[in-house]
Structure formats: structure tokens, C-alpha cells
Design a protein around this nucleic acid. Structure first.
Lengths: 213, 213, 213, 213
DNA sequence: CATGAATGAGTTTTCATTCAT
DNA sequence: AATGAATGAAAACTCATTCAT
């Protein structure tokens, strides 16, 4: 499940308790990595800080992840998998609904996940614009599957005539851009009372009808 | 004019030729920094590489900029100043026009600048989400003035009833998000034939009317 | 105990062996620093050389001391603490003796320490004359406690009428100057057979009676 | 006269005015070097700072002195020559006097010179303890000629039975040490009103009779 | 397995010296 | 001769990674 984990026995070892403890440690490290990578930036984050944050020693981090790169990839893969699972569930659940409802459900799920994993969001954004980074599946690829869901959704909207076809190749990018705009806005918003996910209807209305009077 | 430059004589020294050469070198360094910071990422970029790219030695870079941070800030300040000047000119030029035309003019200017300074755009994006970064004018602050123009423009649109007032506090963020979406899209577009700035009408239409049928 | 040490656990960590090894390494680094700082001069000494001398890598030096300055301060603090402890012991031991004996005991202790830590002496001297050096406990401050002992001793001599009161404010400085003169002399002496400490009686006689016939 | 000066025409060029200007510049540089070397330390002083202090550009410094080392040596040589000339004059003047008077005259001259060239004093002290510094005539050598005068004087005192012969090999070192003690004391003295040279009688009395009651 | 001290390659930064103008 | 920008070797410091305990 975690493609970067190291020394993980292919089949569960005889001891399920040890198994569980190991997984727990790994989870803790991933959580710490998310925090630290986001707080200090992907490049500035130090392995020692991640270890401290996780409450273990550096050595232990290396017992769970081959190297720094693997840890970052593992983190992104984990969060991405969670998000994609949620999105797929949302798409599934709203399968028969009219497009606007489906879109709102989807948007809401997206915002919820980003809100509860803001650091993940930061990391993804940081890498998003970097072209052809040396030999890693980082950056955009981290969002590739999400993008595919968005594209799928937009195709559906087009088929249902809920979306204009002129300029349609931009819909996914503009939708994601708007979502991102809302996210960034909330980072600086003075009123953090309202959960971000409640913005979903506003966002959808904007996406479908625009800001014009 | 360049707040980060070092040893820059307060009044032009007696020698205007030397003066000009010095400025030329500084410009060359800033250009190289833009390229390298964007290509390798703000944190991974090495001063040596920037120097090589500029065709000078490291020492020369340090003759012009106090340190790495100053170079980055100087670069951002330079590009931002150019962009803001262009935006203000656009706002000025379209002063009497109806809102949609003004918005398109503005959007077009924004896209043009980003297109001709894609690396700058990359750098700004990279820092945009990082909160409270150590006492620098980096990241979001780099775009603060641009944001102010957008807000100003949106206020105008509202006053002219060209924009809905419901959800209006999000318009600037959503506008910038959409612009950003178009930018990122173009980074991965297979057909880079059409200049990005030509997307301005599409973008404006999307912003005002949405993607709905 | 060592104010400059880094990462030093507040309470001894669970592992006393590791503890001891760590301390041993620190001691080795301090010894190497003393040698190298003295041999090459405080400013010319290179961290790499100190590391080599100590038989460790640079990184290890930095694991034990925050930076170059801390290492120097740590070294001075360590040696000064040793010296002050010795001096206090000497003063204690000679508590009831007549002043000349006490002075000789003190002088002897001073010379012994300087002889066995000549490099330390060199470093102290090098900084002694520099006024208001950037916010460090270097230079004169390194000897402040020693000076205080000397002043204390002189006060005692005055009280006991063993010293003239005219020009008394100079006695500490002149005493230290004479000690220093003897030290420097021994640096260039061709006959290093006699340990420096044996000069104590001569020094005391000079200090009390002068060089006059 | 200045053994380190560069490009200095062996015989005065045809133009005595230019000659004088050149010498004036050199003097100014030496003065600046004295200040800066003393203020920042021999190793930390930067050529740029010396140039600024002298009111010329770095290039000009290099037009007058081969390199950094030459500048330092030139400075030391210049000051030493002045001091030695003064000392010799003092010895000459007091040729027939009784030893104590001669000693006082000598001491006074020494203190005067150090007082008006405190920076020089600092530099000399800084190098004094460094043994066998790489291939330079620096440090102690800077004082060698002074030491020789002191030795000469002490020999005279011995011959005249004004000084004890027991422990006589230490007299020069102890004398210089006492002078140095007085100097350092004055650096930290709260009452800088009295010129240091007035301390000469006290110093001589101490040297001859000691501090004992 | 966990630990954390040791390692050393890789970066930033400084500054004496050169040289075209 | 004076200038000051350019040079690049040298030094301080960082941090991912290893490995003995």
C-alpha cells in the first residue's frame, strides 16, 4: 500500500502486534513529514526535524523509508490515495444526480480534504509549476489522478450540456484554479470561523455562472 | 531603485560608462537568477550556477547583491515593479471603457507579463502559500501590489454593477485563481503556438459568465 | 558545565557509555582547538585543521559546538575554570601564611598552569589588548576572574602592610605584567631545562624588592 | 626609508612635488593601516577598509605596497624606526646621568610612543607570543631592536651596580612586562586624564624597589 | 529495531589581488 | 597614477546518510 516503505515484509510476519506497531510508527513519521515539509518548505525541511516531530530518532526514519525522497513520495502517495478514494466515493454517490449537484459534492470533498491537510496542499502547490524535475514522480504527478477525476467530471458536464463546449479544454484548469484561489484566500482570511467546505456552493455558482451581474 | 543592490553609488559616480557597465552586469545577474531560481527551484538553485549563467564569477554576484536572499528579493522586486507599471498603464489606458473591456486589457497584460517571465511566475507561486516566512518580502508579499490592483478593479466592477455583489469578497481570489489555472494549463499544453495573452477574452468570459451552458 | 556545548542532554541520557564517549570526543576537540588556535593564531586557525588534529571530521566538531566562536569560548571557559580552581585552592591552602609565601604559592600555580597550557596563554594574550570586541566573553574577560584573584591578593598584602600603598592601584597590573614578562622570556629561552614554575621565588622577590641593587 | 614601498623610484624623479604627494599618500595609507589593523585585529582587517580609511581606492594601496604583508611590515617598520630613533636619542641625551634617571628617561620615551601609537602597540603585542610564524619578520622581530636597547640599558645598570646581578637575565623581560602591564592597565583605566608617560617615575620606582613595603 | 554520534560532500560567503579604463 | 569591478581560491557551516552499540 505504501510503495516507498522499506524492509516491509511482503507477507505479514508471524507477529501481527509488531506489524501494527510498525505501521503506527510509519504513520507517525508521515504525519510529521507532512507538517515539517509544509512548514519549512520541501527543500528546507530537515530529516532531524521530521524525526523529532515524530518522536523518534533519525535512524528510525531511515528504517522506514529508504531516503528523503522516498519519504516525500510516500507522504504524497498516501495523501493522494486518501483524496482520490474520497473523490471517487463522491462521484459514485452522486452518480445519478444532475451535474451541478455532482460538482458541488465533488468540490466540497476537495475542499474538505485540503482543509484537513493544508500542509499537503502546500506541498503539492509548491511542486505544481516545476517542469521535469529530476527523476521524481513529484509535483504535478502528485495531482495527476485528481486532475483525471476533474477531467472526467467536466466531460460528463459537457455531455449533459451543463457546460459550454467553447473553451472547454480550459474547464479543468479553471476549475482547479478557482478552487486554489479559494484555498489561498482562506489562508489569509480574517474570519476562519466558517469551514472552507461551506464555500462549495459559492464556488460552484461562480464556476457555472461567473461573477458577472 | 533596486533596494537590494550593494555598493551602488547614491549619486551617479563621475564615470557614466562604468556606471552603465555596472548596471548591465546587474541586469545580467538578475536575468540569470530568474532562470536558475525557476529551473532548479528557489531552494535548490546554487549561487555558482547563477553566476555561470550570467557569465560572471560568484564574487561578482556578491559585489552586486549582499547575499542570496537579497538577490532573490531584488529579482522579485524588479519583476514586480515592471508588472505593476504595466498593469497601471493598462488601467490608465482603459480608464473610460466599460468594465469587461478594462478587465480584458488587464488580464491580457497580466498574461503577457507572466508569459515573458514564466520563471518569475514560478518563483512567486512557489512562495505564495508559505505563511509568515522569516522576515522577508518574499512570497505573497511579492504579489501584494498586484493583488491590490485586482481588488481595485473588482471594486470598480462592483460599483458599475458589472459584478454580482454576493460573494464579492472572493472575486479577487477567484480571478487570480483562474488566471493561475490558465497559466499552469499552458505549461502543459501541447500546442504552445497561440500566445497565452490571446486567452484573455476566454478568461474574461469565463470570469464573468462562468463555464455553464 | 560547558556553556558552549550543543545538544548536550540536560540530564544524562539513558546510556552512560555513549555519554562517556561523547564527553571524550568533546575533550579531544577542545584539546585540538587549543593546539591549533595557538599554533596558527586565533584568526588563521581553520576548523578543518582542528577537526583533523582531534581525529574527527568537521561535522563532529559542529555536533559539539555551535560554531567557531563557541568552540573558542568553550576552550577558554574550560581552561579558565581549571586555572581559577587551582588558584582558589592555592589561596585556600596558604590562607594563614605570611604574604610573601602566599604570593609565591599563587605565582607558582599561575606559572604551572600557563606552562602546561601555553597555547591557552597565547590565545589569552592575543585577545587581551583588543577593546570592546563584538559581544563575546573573549579577550580580557577571559582573564577577568584571574584578575579578581590577583586584586584580592594585593588587597590582602596591603592590609598586612606587606605592600606599599603608594601606587597601589597598579600592583595587580604590574604583577600580571611581570608574570607575563617571565612567560614570554621562557618562550625564547635557550635553556628550557628548568620548569617555569621554579621561577616563582625570583618573580616574587622581584615584585616585592625590585631589581635594584 | 620604507623598505616595502613599491615602484618607488630609486633616485628622486625629476618632479619633487609629485614625489612629495606620493610620500603623503603612502603616509596616509600607513596611518590608516595602523588604525584598522589595530581596531579589527591583524587578521580580520580588510584591505578595502584600510583604503577607505585612507581615503583612496584599493588599487591605490596596491600601487604603494606589493601586498597585504608588505603593508603590515611597512607599517611596523616605520613605527619601529621612529621608536628606536626616539629611544636612541633618549639614551644619548642621558648618557652621563645616573642609571635611575636614564631609566626613567627611557621609560618615559617608551610610554609616550606607545601612547601616541596605541594601535601599533596592539599589533606588536598581538604578534609577540606567536612562535615561528611562516616566513615573516613579524611579531617579536618587530620589537627586536627595542629589546636590544632594553638589554643594553640593563647591562649598563648592572655594570654600574645599580641592578642586582642575581636573576639578571630576567631584567629585560620583567621591565618590558611591567611596562606592558601599565599600558594594559591604562586601557581600562577610568581616569585617562593623566598622560601615561607621567607614570614613568612610578614604574621606575617599582622596577628598582619593588612593591614591598 | 531504535538510537544518535560521526561522516564529508556540497553550499554560501569573504576578501586579497588583478587589470581594463 | 588612480579607480573600482571582476576574479576565484579558501573557509565556515549544513545536513542527508551510515553504522556501531
Amino acid at each position: 500500500m505504501n510503495p516507498s516503505s522499506k524492509t516491509a515484509p511482503v507477507v505479514s510476519s508471524g507477529n501481527p502486534l509488531r506489524e501494527r506497531l510498525r505501521a503506527e510508527t510509519a504513520r507517525s513519521i508521515v504525519g510529521a513529514a507532512e507538517k515539517v515539509f509544509a512548514a519549512q518548505g520541501v527543500n528546507a525541511a530537515r530529516m532531524d526535524d521530521i524525526a523529532s516531530e515524530a518522536g523518534v530518532s533519525v535512524g528510525t526514519v531511515y528504517n522506514h523509508f529508504e531516503d528523503r525522497e522516498s519519504l516525500l513520495n510516500g507522504l504524497l502517495a498516501t495523501r493522494r490515495a486518501e483524496l482520490v478514494a474520497n473523490l471517487d466515493a463522491a462521484l459514485e454517490a452522486g452518480g445519478g444526480e444532475p451535474f451541478p449537484f455532482m460538482l458541488e459534492r465533488f468540490t466540497s470533498t476537495l475542499l474538505e480534504h485540503f482543509e484537513s491537510h493544508r500542509p499537503f496542499f502546500s506541498i503539492v502547490i509548491e511542486g505544481e509549476h516545476r517542469r521535469g524535475f529530476p527523476a521524481t514522480g513529484r509535483g504535478n504527478d502528485a495531482m495527476l489522478e485528481v486532475y483525471q477525476r476533474v477531467e472526467h467530471l467536466m466531460t460528463r458536464g459537457l455531455r449533459k450540456k451543463a457546460l459550454r463546449s467553447q473553451g472547454a479544454e480550459l474547464w479543468p484548469a479553471l476549475f482547479m484554479g478557482a478552487v486554489r484561489g479559494a484555498m489561498v484566500h482562506s489562508l489569509y482570511d480574517k474570519s476562519p470561523a466558517r469551514p472552507l467546505a461551506e464555500r462549495a456552493p459559492d464556488l460552484v455558482r461562480f464556476f457555472l455562472d461567473g461573477a458577472g451581474a
